[in-house]
Design a protein around this nucleic acid. Structure first.
Lengths: 331, 331
DNA sequence: GCGCATTGCGCAATCGATGTAGCAAGCAAT
DNA sequence: ATTGCTTGCTACATCGATTGCGCAATGCGC
């Protein structure tokens, strides 16, 4: 272990040339530097033979740009964030950048620590996904001259890319209401999951309300339960329901859906498909559960596309892009 | 953007001291280096005021160790790999290391490229998770004097940590066989998903067979379908079933389960819970599907524990640790 | 045989942090 | 007054790659 690694100086000696030439050859800038093909081949050969690997730290130290992009992600425990992680890595590589993801566990302090850490690594940009305090992260980036972007949750100080939550929620609610009308259900709908302070939850509640208003219905406010995202929270909220159970449910995320399903299952309502529901966010198994009418699948590839377009622009001014959700409807 | 960043030289001027002192203070080694508390406080203050952030590239370049650990992961699209990613990040941070995960999309070439890239970043160690060719990765690491470990799939040249696939499969099969006996089913069981060349699939098939042998049964070999992990593959395999349908199914992964469930659902068998199954790997929604008898949940925290214990050891000699699965049984 | 352009390459400074070696000041013991 | 030790700090070389500048050699036209 830990033998000294081959450097451009070693290769220069072996290829009987200078470190500058080796550097130029290995970094790909050798044509611009007018290195002859013959010399370049010689360098490539000895590099190959000696298992040379460029020291990126040294390279980054010297040059201004690091070609590293950082992403702060809350969790890896659902398909949405998993898809974001994969799409991010793919696009970053396509753009010739090295992707670094760091998971902040939905912990505000960890988010800030992660941002500082990424800045220490001299990343060219940070994408803050679902951050609790995006503007604070943007602040840290600005101090260091690092571009920053918000994904999934918007901030006021940097470009933000997110799903059109309001429109998605309106469509989902329409599906629920149509189904109720068709099956002769007339009671109130329930909205469960999320936090009111959370931008996305607020937007989805607004969409939920609007769908009601559009039909001249007044939704029962007491059936709106933004009890947090965690499955246990939703489960507890449902168990302690005082009022009569709802006719149908709008579930705010797949994480919340886990709790809802547990409740449905334990109260013997699941298999009968007795209680129709829709869900914001998509999961392949969740899609197959009885009673599931539709899921709003967020368009991750499109969102990431927009982010990387913004990334390639020179300036880094606040803006907000809404990406429509894809609707997955089940028979 | 891209204003010049504050360095230890700037801080040295501002705090009226030398760069060495600033370096010692910022790296935390100032007590050992006998810097007075007064001076240290002065440095801390100007660092704070100027939003100083240490240049890790410069630091790593100078010192031998980088304190970066890399992980190569196939995908982020299921709970198992998601849990691995999170556990890895958590443990790495606890150990004072910076975690970098890179996703190789189950692509052998990308795996190798990823290994080379991580080596370029001078990582102290690489954990290859579910790699198609772990020994090749170990080779690249050895050339560079980097420690390497295999997770989930074993290699011959580096320490390997994986689930006890054979034992888990045997237990799962026992559950299936018990259920069949109790419900008067006597036909053959089916094993579906995975690849025979894949170590884990082979081990699980062995466990599956053993459970049969232990009861004096001869399982029908033609019902062992290692058709790959992808949902579509499993779906296609099931659709083109010539023989009579099996009495019960052993599903080799949650990814494969997606295809199985689609088939069950489309052939109208799912909701009736007509076809009992078990599954290697766990998923919260999958756990609630009708007919699901049990899932083998791999003990990710324990596996990661073992990996980091090995990581802290001096040598890096091949070995193999099997971690038992946790069984989740459903009523 | 002179001037000028082009080709191919090397020199040396530089990026920012680290740590060894060494120096000056202060104090105590002899 | 001298020696020896501690304290608190500074100077400087170093890690490995990059890059502006310059220099020698060659080709070409006249």
């Amino acid at each position: 272990m830990s033998k000294r690694r081959t450097t451009i100086y070693d290769l220069a000696t072996l290829a009987d040339t200078s470190p500058s030439v080796v550097s130029a050859v290995m970094s790909g800038s050798w044509k611009k530097r007018r290195i002859s093909e013959k010399t370049a081949d010689r360098v490539f050969k000895v590099a190959e033979e000696n298992g040379y690997s460029r020291n990126i730290q040294a390279s980054v130290l010297r040059s201004a740009r690091s070609n590293i992009v950082g992403m702060i992600l809350p969790k890896y425990d659902n398909r949405y964030f998993g898809a974001i992680a994969e799409a991010f890595e793919t696009r970053a590589r396509e753009a010739g950048l090295f992707p670094v993801i760091t998971c902040a566990q939905r912990d505000p302090d960890l988010e800030i620590a992660a941002a500082r850490e990424l800045v220490s690594y001299r990343v060219d940009a940070i994408i803050a996904t679902g951050a609790t305090d995006p503007d604070r992260i943007t602040g840290i980036c600005k101090d260091a001259g690092v571009k920053s972007f918000n994904l999934d949750l918007p901030g006021a100080l940097a470009p933000s890319v997110l799903s059109d939550n309001e429109d998605g929620a309106r469509t989902l609610t329409d599906i629920l209401l149509d189904h109720c009308a068709a099956t002769g259900r007339s009671g109130p709908l329930m909205f469960i999951g999320g936090r009111v302070a959370d931008h996305n939850t607020a937007a989805r509640i607004e969409g939920f309300r609007q769908a009601h208003r559009d039909r001249g219905l007044t939704e029962a406010t007491d059936l709106i339960l933004p009890c947090g995202y965690a499955p246990e929270k939703a489960y507890a909220a449902l168990m302690s329901l005082k009022a009569s159970t709802p006719q149908a449910i709008f579930v705010n995320s797949t994480i919340t859906l886990e709790g809802v399903i547990r409740w449905l299952s334990e109260t013997d309502r699941l298999m009968k498909g007795e209680l129709p529901f829709v869900c914001f966010d998509w999961d392949p198994f969740g899609a197959l559960l009885p009673g599931n009418l539709a899921m709003a699948r967020q368009d991750v590839p499109k969102m990431m596309s927009v982010v990387f377009d913004l990334l390639s622009e020179e300036q880094n001014t606040p803006s907000k892009v809404l990406v429509p959700c894809l609707m997955e409807r089940f028979p």
